[in-house]
């Protein structure tokens, strides 16, 4: 079972993610974090195969976690893939201009391509 950490401050969105992964039962274990702090806490305890990251969050925006994953000595070694899921387009993310290729899904999430990408990045594959 691949372990996915979803970082999203909107509770409604948690419900949406649950629904998205509903039909993939048995393949993924979902961890939910309302904030970046919570996400870091989970990362320190759990082995995570993929992070789905919202950008506009309070008080710490998602970019911080993204940069931390790339720069922090320990986290960098874990090479955890990240999917950014946001209503905004990539060019509206501050401070992510220079980080190279970023995998971004615009909300509303298109169920099929999103799950396909999740499968690719975790190596789980889709049905």
């Amino acid at each position: 079972m691949k372990r996915i950490l979803i970082v999203e401050d909107e509770k409604s969105m948690h419900e949406v993610y649950q629904d998205i992964f509903l039909e993939e039962e048995g393949q993924y274990h979902l961890f939910f974090a309302f904030s970046v702090e919570e996400a870091l806490n989970i990362l320190s305890k759990e082995a995570i195969d993929l992070i789905v990251l919202d950008i506009i969050m309070e008080p710490i925006p998602g970019q911080y976690l993204y940069l931390k994953l790339m720069q922090d000595e320990d986290l960098k070694q874990r090479k955890i893939p990240v999917i950014i899921a946001s209503v905004l387009k990539k060019d509206m993310f501050e401070r992510l201009e220079n980080v190279g290729e970023v995998c971004v899904f615009e909300k509303p999430l298109a169920r099929e391509p999103f799950l396909k990408k999740v499968g690719e990045l975790t190596g789980a594959g889709t049905k």
């Binding site: 969105m13 949406v16 629904d19 209503v87 905004l88 509206m92 509303p108 169920r111």
Partner: peptide
């Protein structure tokens, strides 16, 4: 611009996704 986009697009996106869930 960013905030208005976010503010307007988020509920719309949610509605779309709610619709998707409803459909399913």
């Amino acid at each position: 611009i960013r905030d208005v986009s976010h503010s307007l697009k988020t509920p719309v996106a949610m509605l779309e996704m709610a619709n998707d869930i409803g459909q399913r």
